[in-house]
Amino acid sequence: MSALFSQNPLMNGPNYSFSDTPVSHPNEAHGELREHRFNPYTDNGGSTLAIAGADFAIVAGDTRLTSGYSIHTRYSPKVFKIGGTTADQKDATIVLSVVGFAADGTALRERLDAACKMYRYRHGKPMSVNAAAKRLSTMLYQKRFFPYYVYAILAGLDEEGKGAVYSYDPVGSYEREMCRAGGAAASLIMPFLDNQVNFKNQHIPGSGEGHAIQEREKKPLLREQVEILVKDAFDGAVERHIEVGDGLQMMVITSQGVEEHYLPLKKD
């Protein structure tokens, strides 16, 4: 994740495919002296994905937890229900996914959940997804100089009942989008989503020559279509990224509440 676009052979020596395979001491690999200092972060791998529909939103994440080449566990969820009235979150309407450093992810999730519960206590109503989105941004920015090393995605239904997906960088910069992939395999999944959700590079055949050609009309996908896309995206990511696999956790947010599904992924 550290070097999303460092595939340039000039920047890190001759290479053919992944240049940022995990190394135990990155500096040593380049023959530099290593300063012995406690590193408060680690990358626990994994990938997440969220897609907004007309009246639903889907958030998915794999369940593998890694560190370097080790698989710590095959089931460690990174998609969570947020802001329910009880500990089991069965009446929650907002979903948060966190990927990156798992301990920071847990801390952030608990803080946001506590903030949502405090909001409910003070205002006597559940927090809207756009309010929670803003609150999450503030939380991340509060730790601007010792950041939560996580790529967060928040999803729910907005005040009009439409699917809403908010994506964040580790220091709280955020944006509402139709879809977003995060984590280790984000660069593998994101172009696929551009193509299949936002219909990028798709045109109407025979609609014109050159610049006159018309783009395919953008409209939100059906839930069945989105579920297939999510599975296909993860099957692709599992095949080509060692930190992604084991299981796929999927949360579907509708006006009826949040459904949770689990599907097995390849465990190799």
Partner: peptide, 12 residues
């Protein structure tokens, strides 16, 4: 330079 993106696209 776009190997990761290409792997994702081709694989799917």
């Amino acid at each position: 330079t776009a190997t990761e993106q290409l792997f994702g696209m081709c694989e799917s």
